[in-house]
Simulated assay, not measured.
Amino acid sequence: MQEVEKFLKECGVYFVATVDGDQPRVRPFGTANIFDGKLYIQTGKSKDVSKQIHTNAKVEVCALDKSGSKWLRITGKLVSDDRREAKVDMLEHYPSLKAMYSPDDDNTEVFYFKDATATFYSFAETPRTVKF
């Protein structure tokens, strides 16, 4: 899981796919943080992505490294964690978000991956899978 977090952080931006009815939706994300032994991401409760995850927790993530030769795909379910400690930890790792989010507002939301499968791909190597 640490390798997955490191890859996402090095990419800077990765894409999360959700389902909205029968329409897939993809958008950029930039947070990845291990807390309490789980890999977390962050968004706002007011965003459509949050509503889509609450309706269908299955997501897929795709991240491409800066060289363009390696990428990562993660499939799994996202579970909302309303604990203040989880929000505080995320915001401490991403202080720039503090201008928009607070652990005490009604908007900040963190999710952790459950039953996740991460596969590392490369043009030069055999795919490698990590489960967490």
Rank of each mutant, 00 (worst) to 15 (best):
M1I: 13
M1F: 11
Q2A: 15
Q2D: 15
Q2W: 07
E3F: 03
V4N: 08
E5K: 13
F7E: 04
V13N: 06
F15M: 15
F15Y: 12
T18M: 03
T18S: 13
T18E: 08
V19N: 13
D20Y: 03
D22C: 10
D22A: 11
D22Q: 12
P24F: 00
R27W: 06
R27S: 12
P28M: 07
F29M: 09
T31E: 04
I34K: 05
I34V: 11
G37E: 13
K38S: 00
K38Q: 04
K38L: 01
Y40D: 07
Y40P: 02
Q42K: 08
T43N: 03
K45Q: 05
S46K: 15
K51R: 14
K51N: 05
Q52E: 13
Q52F: 05
H54Y: 13
N56H: 11
N56F: 06
V61D: 02
C62A: 12
L64T: 11
D65F: 01
G68T: 05
G68E: 11
S69D: 14
K70R: 15
W71P: 07
W71V: 01
W71I: 01
L72F: 03
I74F: 06
T75N: 09
K77T: 13
L78T: 01
V79M: 07
D81F: 00
D82Q: 09
R83L: 04
R84T: 11
A86E: 02
K87W: 00
M90P: 01
E92N: 15
H93K: 14
K98R: 14
M100G: 09
M100A: 14
D104P: 07
D104Q: 04
D106P: 04
N107I: 05
E109G: 09
F113V: 05
F113T: 01
K114Q: 14
A116E: 03
A116M: 01
T117N: 04
A118G: 06
T119P: 06
F120Y: 04
S122T: 08
A124F: 14
E125T: 15
E125I: 07
P127Y: 02
P127C: 08
R128F: 08
T129Q: 12
T129S: 14
V130P: 03
F132W: 10
F132Y: 13
